[in-house]
């Protein structure tokens, strides 16, 4: 059997292909990338929480019911849309997040949501999280203020779970 390509040519081509493959392998996991500088950590502030309905349910009058098509004659008229939530996060008394979070979904009936990442230097920090989900105009319905110590490279998550009593670290 005779080779279609001579031996020196085969070796040459093999060398080229190996070089390209080695190039691919080299940059397949290097150089390394630093998402956050050394000596810092991350606090994630995130929750998904539904506030109350915008207003109370109302009992429909018999006349109103009669006007509705038979399959939609429900005695209670409940608004679908929910109230917006106001949330605030302060790190060492600096407010880093303060925002009204509208309900999600087309019908505005989904939970209000937030997901934010904050970089902090390693060490102790006072974290204050506050949230308003009722009609009150000022003040907050939930609050958690706590000193936390952040290790370098640590990732802490502050969630809101009313069934667990409000803001919780996860």
């Amino acid at each position: 059997m005779s080779l279609p390509v001579s031996i020196p040519r085969l070796i040459g081509l093999f060398a080229v292909l190996t070089a390209v493959t080695a190039f691919a392998a080299t940059f397949s996991n290097a150089p390394a990338y630093r998402q956050i500088p050394a000596g810092t950590g991350v606090i994630k502030f995130s929750f998904s929480h539904s506030a109350d309905r915008g207003r109370e349910c109302r009992r429909r009058t018999p006349e109103e019911l009669a006007k509705l098509p038979p399959n939609m004659r429900r005695p209670l008229d409940c608004p679908r849309s929910r109230r917006a939530i106001f949330a605030e996060l302060a790190i060492d008394d600096v407010v880093v997040f303060s925002k009204e979070l509208p309900p999600s979904g087309f019908a505005k009936d989904g939970p209000s949501q937030v997901y934010r990442r904050f970089m902090v230097a390693a060490g102790s920090h006072t974290i204050a999280a506050r949230l308003r989900d009722t009609p009150r105009a000022s003040g907050f319905d939930h609050e958690r203020i706590e000193a936390v110590s952040v290790r370098p490279g640590q990732s802490l998550a502050l969630d809101f779970r009313p069934e667990h009593g409000g803001f919780i670290w996860r």
Partner: peptide, 18 residues
């Protein structure tokens, strides 16, 4: 590159630059 741990930020991490 070591098991994932969501309590930590994977940094530095070796990226596949392709």
């Amino acid at each position: 590159q070591g098991a994932a741990d969501l309590a930590k930020v994977p940094s530095p991490v070796g990226l596949d630059w392709f």
